[in-house]
Amino acid sequence: MLAVQKVSRTFDNGYKAFKPVSFHTEQSEIVGILGTSGCGKSTLLRAIAGLDLGFDGEISFQEQSVRSGTEHTGVVFQEPRLMPWLTVIDNVVFGLKGNKQEKREKGARLLRAVGLKDTEKLYPRELSGGMAQRAAIARALVTNPQLLLLDEPFSALDAFTKMQLQELLIDLWETNHTSMLIVTHDIDEALFLCDRVLIFRDQPGVLFKDLKIDLQRPRERGSLEMAEYKREILQSLDLNHDVHVKSAI
């Protein structure tokens, strides 16, 4: 499926966002990219999405290089990024081509799937943050992507809405089995959603650990096994690194 080979990104100003990383993901897998802020997670995701082709190395999805097109990927950003002049349904079908009637039907179906049944004719300003992000998820799924990329999709939402949307994502996955790559800095979110977590750390970032999350679905938040995984992740993130350095001085 997704193959990332020795990919790194050096910006024009000479700054390196992350050191060469390589990993593969499997069909239908939900993979988390977890790391502290500034370690290059968004930069990596933008490269995979084909939004930033200035990277070194090679990224391919189903044997096709992202440099030659990314029509099988959908993207959900941290902000909903809905077009404020379009109604919710027109936003959802924004990336679709073809017959108007078919587009409507498909958009309406996706709105139902994300729990936004009666909002077709509303404008984005009339939506709450959670509703807007639901619409953004519907927009990303409307083209039937085989890989869904999400960059901290729920980090701007309150704790309860966040949990609802995480559950929505799992519900959607259970019907479509779309592969997903989710950037997050929320360990609980990663543990609730992901089959595998890639742990990044340091600046420039390095891929420090590839951790398989062997938990049955539906997962129970706050279970003992999860707490165990969380401890392991916290240890590898080495958040106290700076503190050690300082106390040594």
Binding site: G115, L116, L122, E126
Partner: peptide
């Protein structure tokens, strides 16, 4: 999946 948010929609 919950519909709670939707029922509070400000469309009316």
């Amino acid at each position: 999946m919950t519909q709670t948010e939707v029922s509070h929609s400000p469309n009316k």
